[in-house]
Amino acid sequence: MGVKMSAAIEIKGVAPNENMETCARLIIVGYFREMMSYKDGAIDGTNIEFVHDMRVASRRLRAAMDNFSDCFQGELFKQHYRQIRTITRTMGVVRDLDVLIAHFQSEVQTLPHEEQSGIHGLIEKLQQKREIVRKPMLELFTELETNDFESKFLAFFQSEG
């Protein structure tokens, strides 16, 4: 399938002599904002790259939270971490199907006509499954909005420790 990853974003204010905690907050907020910027496109679902980009940004965000967890105290950090992990996992299920469908759609073109029907059947099954697994993703986005997750996350990581 060979799908390559989006490049890292540049985060202003991160510098060698800046203190670790300040940089950790800037990096986490930067990747959180990037992740959320793809949400509307992921909800729309027409262009599969939005789900991909949102998932990759959530993975970078998790990596930052894993690396820099000692900069933050208390249960609230753990709650935010778990929520990001849920986002990554929920989007991962959708993304995996998007990639598989695109792969088989491309491969089926290379088969002789008499060999194509089985793969068309497989693509149809995967597309049905995709519609099913998009529902939990859309419900998760609604839940995040209802719980004001974005504001709470930013308030936590933008406040000084």
């Binding site: 002599n17 800046e18 203190n19 670790m20 894993d66 690396n67 967890s69 000692d70 900069c71 420790g161």
Partner: peptide, 21 residues
């Protein structure tokens, strides 16, 4: 699971922590 990072110091510089992480 990711291995827990040992020795991160939030008050030291970003560069010093790069050498730890």
């Amino acid at each position: 699971k990711p291995q827990k990072i040992i020795g991160l110091n939030p008050k030291q510089s970003f560069r010093q922590n790069a050498r730890t992480v």
